[in-house]
Write a protein that binds this DNA or RNA. Sequence first.
DNA 1: TTTTGAGTTGTTCGA
DNA 2: GTCGAACAACTCAAA
Length: 472
Amino acid sequence: MLEKTTIFWFRQDLRILDNPGLWEASKNGPIMPIYILDDACAGSCKRGEASRWWLYHSLKNLNRSLQDSLNIYEGDSLKIILQILKDHPPIKAVYWNRCYEPWRVQDDAAIKSFLKNKGIECKSFNGSLLWEPWQILTKDHKPYKVYTPFYRKGCLEASTPRTPLPKPEKLIGVKDPFHTKTLEELPLLPTKTWYRGLEKVWKIGEQGAQEAFQIFLEQGLQDYQEGRDYPFRSKVSRLSPHLHFGEISPHQIWYCLHSNLKPTPDKDCFLKELAWREFSYYCLYHFPTLPFQNFQSKFDTFPWQDNPLLLHAWQKGQTGYPIVDAGMRELWHTGYMHNRIRMIVASFLVKNLGISWHHGRDWFWDCLVDADLANNSFGWQWAAGSGADAAPYFRIFNPITQGEKFDPEGHYTRTFVPELSRIPIEYLFKPWQAPEQILKQSGIILGQTYPYPIVDLASSRSWALQTYASLK
DNA sequence: TTTTGAGTTGTTCGA
DNA sequence: GTCGAACAACTCAAA
């Protein structure tokens, strides 16, 4: 039986449905499903804490779907695959779905050529992007650098994304008795149980992803275009961590929106967001230094401020600007932050505190359950103004105005900054302006129960405008 | 090669 | 309260 067995290597495609590599492998016969925790090889791209927590549960779920046949390893991928092949000489094929992190792309190429030289059949598939980055180019055969032409011309006028695949008809999982580890042996769960808050908000795994998508279709999509900007309304899909781990594919989403519903502005708007994910991956593929280097090199001389105290206040949600603090605490407690708030806290860190986007990138990387190399790098460069098709430098969010506009009743801010729960709405986003009497009635002592603003908005804004304008 | 039109998400100021 | 301009040119992508 083993001579017909194919090793299927799970990576960021932790699902059974619409899994092209798994589908093809299972057509050959039995599969030996494997997962390798190999991110020690990823250098600074090693997964953060929240992401590892999610991965643990997602693998647990996947293993259940595979009737306990998932084989788990830790270490260098090539060495481990060679060991498995050595332990099981009849096996002659290894399949996987492609990843796009630069270190992964390099490793995969090396693994493929090594295995092929040894006479092992090696096939990779597209499991996680609607369009392969190398297929979308300008008329001059160069990569796009602007989102709108990338999407409208590049993607929409290219081939239609494939339709999703069903569950493999015959899925027979083979267990490797030799060098596997148990899930518990992987260094995924932290020793401190800080993740209790996260457990309440997420349902991890393929089924959880499908449920989240269904809930979005039923409750979020209607008025998505307008509602997605308001963090307290449940209009956003919250699919980002599921997409990152491949618990759902963009093809399933794309196909569902195209086949089941008439085109609407809300639907188009959501698909455009999905296309931003494509653009992030596209930029990372064509510009592999995106996670580390300014996409626009004129930012290399930017005089970022090195201020650990301000950075710490931002990380812990103690800046004295309630909408910023609410966002940073949402991140800490739930492993997630609403998109609108991500822009506000990013603008605040980079433009008001003058701290490099690298620090924001690293904090998000550690705290987000949806931490994704392409999206996180792209997003931070966009916010800092140094990225591809980035925000213009004079676009500086005012945390008071943004709070009043997008959290008009204050539900979001009061949820995550409970010490302000009793302050009247007209002072919620600027408590330092409240009269003494009001603060007293609300049980607030500035500087004790809630901080004074750590930076002056007007002067930091004009510093940013001047500094950005001086870049050449 | 040159030209032309366009480009995610904002704020402030003054009329 | 509302509205348009300024913020600043620059680069991209296609004709």
